[in-house]
Design a protein around this nucleic acid. Structure first.
Length: 874
RNA sequence: GCGAAAGUGGCGGAAUCGGUAGACGCGCGAGACUUAGGAUCUCGUGGGCACGCCCGUGGGGGUUCGAGUCCCCCCUUUCGCACCA
């Protein structure tokens, strides 16, 4: 629709131009000095991508654009925003893909990174390309290895034999967090349990701190909750059940060993109040005491059961709803509360990884124990009686003044002590069948019984966590080698820091196998090295570290990227960290986000940094679906961003992504939806270009009011990442400017261009330039520029972002609602600030209102200033 | 089973504090312009009819002058954890 005079909006040309100019002028990048000298630093971080061969997908762009919009918003407000990007390129994901296509990862990854870089530039985000990281670069992973050594020296990294999750598909060990419902997060293969010697980070030492800090960090609530659940703190007690030696010793083959082992079985329980009801004990099949407890006549059955469990895959074993299985060991232990001998069983519903790997079974008050006891005909004893009503409990509200329950104790006890249980009772109540503790509230009994047993050394209060230590060994090729040497004479020797990096060698055949060792173990010339301590023969650790270690500290590296003398510079780190705003996916709620918090705490404790939480503020973004369904290759509904960007431009694509739903909840991508934002930008263009056609009149009246209301709305919404409603407000304002096809004035559109800039930076730059500005809209304006603004235009200090005038942001005439008996009967325009009596008179002047009042007496009037009046009639 | 979030037009989604339900956009309808239209512009667009109202935010109760919003019960969906003692 070009009419010679009119220039059409051509996003491709404009965007190409500005991306080139940004690069040439260094608009978005910092030199080393500038980075060190920046005032009002704001570290705007987004989760760096894994550079897949498929290229950037729409989910990446959605995440990054939301973060970039925020960064640009802060920058327009005068902050010195540091917005880096990098590549998380090590790991099983990359390696598996390389294997699939038959290209070595050392060739594949640089290609992918080049492709990603091209695509990322095309999205128009303001990345600082002077400060990027690539985790596979030896200049980066040198410091990943350094980090490992710091943990090693601090005693936080240790090698130990442990049951680990082995993925038979990926041929490697996985961290607990990488096992989803018993399956490998990457390939979906059922995970097996193996006993291997692995490197662990003692993250459990930090469990309480990781939990405590959640109370003050400013994060999305759901993310905090996920971490809280993952850490899984439970309070209770460790109880000790002495082994009934008499019975065990009779059957023992090696009686001498008996004395070497502790003559007790330790259990963790959150219900020490129910110990009088512990009628048997269950150990995990792998429990080390099983052998000692097993009697000769039960040995065959026990061995068979253990063998069956050992070969069972983890998915099958962890199924909650399968029928309970188990076998009696023939051994007994003594209930420390009752003194009774109780039988010891093994069953796979007890997990070796949690607590002590043994439980006291209280079938009366635990669903699982009840099921087990029922199946194997074990005694079930009630020790907690449900009070007639909660008020009846001693000390409860409604209890008598002397603290005794409203229902008599005797009554409650008598009623239910003898009553048989048809299912486990897990609720609150009063103790029964518990000797001296009868009649005590269950919650008080927890402490009382623990104390009572503790006097005899049979219990102590205990806090347990679900969190496990972080297994970082991977028997794979594509990762940083763990910087450890094994010497026959000196044992485990850390690689001296001066010898870092331990470079990952080029290995032609890097395919993993069943052996349980890394492909690097096949490269003798690499792993055979002299011991740095004795000079004798040593052997390198051949496992590489988990990818999540690479990403656990990358945010510390960005400002110091390119520095070869330190992992992170002290002064730069002090200036820029912790991260001011971190935006990323919820899928990392318990992986990356927990690990990087842990690593940061460790570095803090070791004196390397002066903060212990890496991200002051974290916001999760939502997920994009396509036409109401998850995107997947098999469904064939994957959005390829390049095509859309080519057709509509990055500006429209970005704006659409931010418009299609609340950013923190995600939304539904529909091809036709792009028309809206594209049309919006086109109309904005048509309003401003050619600039010579713009009017010079100052903004005034209702439009001025609307502008200020829009500035307020957009400013507030952007601060809270409510991008969709901010865009809607801008659309509304532009519609008002164009009302009736009138010619726009410069004073009406210039502020709008700044508001649009975070979403559509290219068109904003272009229009800004055409309006006569020489410098980027994102640069801090000079005094001259600030002074040359149209009348009534005010901006925040140091930026072009407009400031609204609260006086002007409110309307003079409001549409006032008149209700009769709560139903809307009229809408009348009134002056803002109208008094109740005036409003009432105006309401009653309305014909329709009068019709409904119908001469009846007005019994009550509800008046909400500037909103409504409600007349209540008989 | 536990934890978290959410159910609003044909669709994506709006709606600070309990105060005009459906902003904005898509789609659709009518019209204008046009050789043409998957372009652009204008107007309309929750349902119903007696054209003034009635009905409408998953279902059922309740509180209130007034409920999408608060309370109780139920249903559905999505996500996370899942034999965690």
């Amino acid at each position: 629709m070009s009419d010679g005079n009119h220039e059409t909006y051509t996003p491709a040309a404009i965007e190409e131009k500005w991306q080139r100019l940004w690069e040439e002028r260094g608009t978005n990048t910092y030199g080393d000095e500038a980075l060190a000298a920046a005032d009002r630093p704001f570290y705007n971080l987004m989760m760096f991508p894994y550079p897949s061969a498929e290229g950037l997908h729409v989910g990446n762009i959605y995440a990054f654009t939301g973060a970039d919009v925020y960064g640009r918003f802060r920058r327009l407000q005068g902050d010195a925003v540091f917005e880096p990007i990098g590549f998380d390129a090590f790991g099983i994901h990359s390696e598996n893909y390389a294997l699939k296509v038959g290209t070595h990862p050392m060739e594949l990854i640089p290609k992918n990174i080049a492709n990603f870089t091209r695509q990322l530039r095309r999205t128009g985000a303001m990345y600082d390309w002077n400060h990027t990281v690539d985790t596979t670069d030896p200049r980066y992973y040198r410091w990943t290895q350094w980090l490992f050594l710091q943990l090693y020296k601090a005693g936080l990294a240790e090698k130990r034999e442990a049951p680990v999750n082995w993925c038979p598909g990926c041929h490697t060990v996985l961290a607990n967090e990488q096992v989803i419902a018993g399956e490998c997060e990457r390939c979906g293969t059922a995970v097996e349990q193996r006993y291997l010697s692995q490197w662990f980070f003692r993250i459990t030492d930090y469990a309480q701190r990781l939990l405590d800090d959640l109370s003050w960090i400013d994060w999305s609530e759901t993310t905090k909750k996920a971490q809280e659940n993952w850490i899984g703190r439970s309070e209770g007690a460790e109880l000790r059940f002495p082994i009934a030696r008499r019975r065990v010793a009779e059957d023992r083959h090696e009686p001498a060993r008996l004395h070497a082992e502790p003559p007790v079985i330790r259990v963790f329980t959150t219900r020490p109040d129910t110990v009088f009801g512990a009628t048997f004990m269950v150990l995990a099949p792998e429990h080390p005491l099983v052998d000692a407890l097993t009697s000769d006549d039960q040995r065959a059955a026990v061995e068979a059961y253990r063998a069956r469990i050992a070969t069972m895959d983890v998915v099958a074993r962890k199924k909650t709803d399968k029928e309970k299985t188990g076998v009696f060991t023939g051994g007994y232990c003594i209930n420390p509360a009752t003194g009774e001998e109780i039988p010891v069983w093994i069953a796979d519903y007890v997990l070796m990884e949690y607590g002590t790997g043994a439980i006291m079974a209280v079938p009366g008050h635990d669903d699982r124990d009840f099921e087990f006891a029922t199946k194997f005909a074990l005694p079930i004893r009630r020790v907690v009686a449900e009070a007639a009503d909660p008020e009846a409990m001693p000390g409860a509200p409604g209890a008598r003044e002397d603290g005794t329950p409203a229902v008599s104790e005797a009554e409650a006890l008598a009623r239910s002590a003898a009553e048989p249980l048809t299912e486990a009772y897990t609720g609150p109540g009063v103790l029964v069948n518990s000797d001296r503790f009868n009649g005590m509230r269950w919650d008080e009994a927890k402490r009382a019984i623990t104390d009572w047993l503790a006097e005899r050394g049979l219990a102590e209060p205990r806090v347990n966590y679900r969190l496990h230590d972080w297994c970082i060994s991977r028997q794979r090729y594509w990762g940083p080698p763990i910087p450890i040497l094994y010497c026959d004479r000196c044992g485990t020797v850390p690689v001296p820091e001066a010898d870092l990096p331990v470079v990952l060698p080029y290995v032609e055949d890097y395919k993993p196998d069943e052996s349980g060792v890394s492909p690097l173990a096949r490269v003798e010339e690499w792993y055979r090295v002299p011991c740095p301590e004795c000079g004798g023969e040593a052997r390198r650790e051949t496992d590489v570290s988990d990818t999540f270690l690479d990403s656990a500290w990358y945010f510390l590296r960005y400002p110091s990227a390119g520095r070869d003398d330190v992992a992170f510079d002290r002064a730069l780190t002090k200036k820029w960290l912790p991260v001011d705003m971190y935006i990323g996916g919820e899928e990392h709620a318990v992986l990356h986000l927990l690990y990087s918090r842990f690593i940061t705490m460790v570095l803090h404790d070791l004196g390397h940094i002066d903060f212990e939480e890496p991200y002051v503020r974290f916001r999760k973004h939502g997920l994009i679906i396509k036409d109401g369904a998850k995107m997947s290759k098999s469904r064939g509904n994957v959005v390829v961003p390049d095509e859309y960007i080519e057709r509509f431009g990055a500006d429209a694509f970005r704006t659409y992504l931010m418009f299609l739903g609340p950013y923190q909840e995600g939304g539904d991508f529909r091809d036709q939806g792009l028309q809206g934002p594209y049309g919006f930008l086109s109309r904005l263009w048509d309003c401003v270009v050619p600039v010579a056609m713009l009017g010079d009149a100052p903004i005034e009246g209702a439009l001025e009011q609307k502008l200020h209301a829009t500035i307020r709305k957009v400013t507030e919404d952007l601060a809270e990442l409510r991008y969709n409603t901010a865009i809607a407000a801008m659309m509304e304002y532009l519609n008002a400017v164009r009302e009736g096809g009138r010619r726009a004035n410069r004073s009406e559109v210039e502020p709008l261009i700044v508001l649009v800039a975070p979403f559509a930076p290219h068109i904003a730059e272009e229009l800004w330039q055409r309006l006569g500005h020489e410098r980027s809209i994102f640069e801090r304006p000079t005094e001259g520029e600030a002074a040359a603004r149209p009348a009534g235009w005010r901006s925040v200090a140091g930026g072009n972002w407009p400031v609204f005038d609260p006086e002007k942001a409110t309307v003079d005439v409001v549409e006032f609602v008149v209700q009769v008996n709560g139903k809307v009967r009229a809408r009348i325009p009134v002056e803002r600030g109208i008094r109740e009596d005036e409003a009432r008179a105006a309401a009653l002047a309305d014909e329709n209102v009068r019709r409904f009042v119908n001469g009846n007496q007005v019994r009550k009037v509800i008046f909400v200033p500037d909103r409504l009046i409600n007349l209540v009639v008989a």
